[in-house]
Amino acid sequence: MASSQRFQTAAVRIEGVEKHFGNVHAVRGISLEIPERSLCGFLGPNGAGKSTTIRMIMSIISPDRGTVEVLGGSALSMKDRIGYLPEDRGLYRKMRVGEFLGYVARLKGVHATGLSRRIDDWLERLALPGVAKRRCEELSKGQQQKIQLLASIIHAPDLLILDEPFSGLDPVNGRIVLDLIREEQARGATIIFSTHQMHTAEALCDRIVLINKGEKVLDTTMADLRATHDDRGLVCEPRADPAAFAEAARARGIARHARLHDNGAVDLELADGQTTESAMSAVLEIAPMRSIALRRMNLDDVFVEIVGGSDAKGAKIDA
């Protein structure tokens, strides 16, 4: 990292931040620390306060209360060390791509010498060769999105904040962006990104912050999250009636909860005292199985459970 000596452990430190918009209490006393070089996912339903929190981190808006410290100082004085891809994407339609990228890079303090070559290299890298001379309005939506992402990383920032970086991208371009984010982290940047795509967050993040109704409801590392949720469940496909199997598993004290899936699979959340090995043996005694597997942590489920929409996913039988 270019200036890692300026901060010790936290790239972003937020303390008791509140924000109102008129009568709407958008952010309610959020405190968090994002360690340097981490890749942190900001998750939450629409309107949860993710973008507002991100804008406060960027010093685009000021909190009503609380403090925000970015890279050891105020984001206002660190803007050239921060890359930001806003949720609402924007380009100057009539400006040429190379000129736009050059303009943003120069505003961020990149020296003009060699900038043109640098832009060409990046465009090549993002599978956009030869577009530097084209006007932004001539590009497809996906191409424009990649140009916007490039505008946020062209100055090699120490902190990269990406608000919904994958929205609107096809799988090929999504993969390119995914690789780019990983490379930025490998370079040493701290990355915060908000997304609704749980599988992407699961694959990328080493830290998760879940925000709901303006409050932080989860702030943990992926390792801790997995340790909490992994190995405490089984996914079974009984040859017999799934509902009867689920009821039996609960009745025999194998599972605390059992959830039926539309495809006939049954999720068992193991009861206290059960190990995965003992539970596997026990369920085989109830009914013959097509398959039986350890249940891996699913961020989707964690999200739905915490946000309160768990009823939306299949019937749940409580112990």
Partner: peptide, 16 residues
């Protein structure tokens, strides 16, 4: 135009 194009926030990420 900058506001409706959403380019404003990109600029505000670089300037005050």
């Amino acid at each position: 135009e900058e506001k409706s194009n959403k380019v404003m926030e990109v600029l505000l990420a670089a300037t005050s």
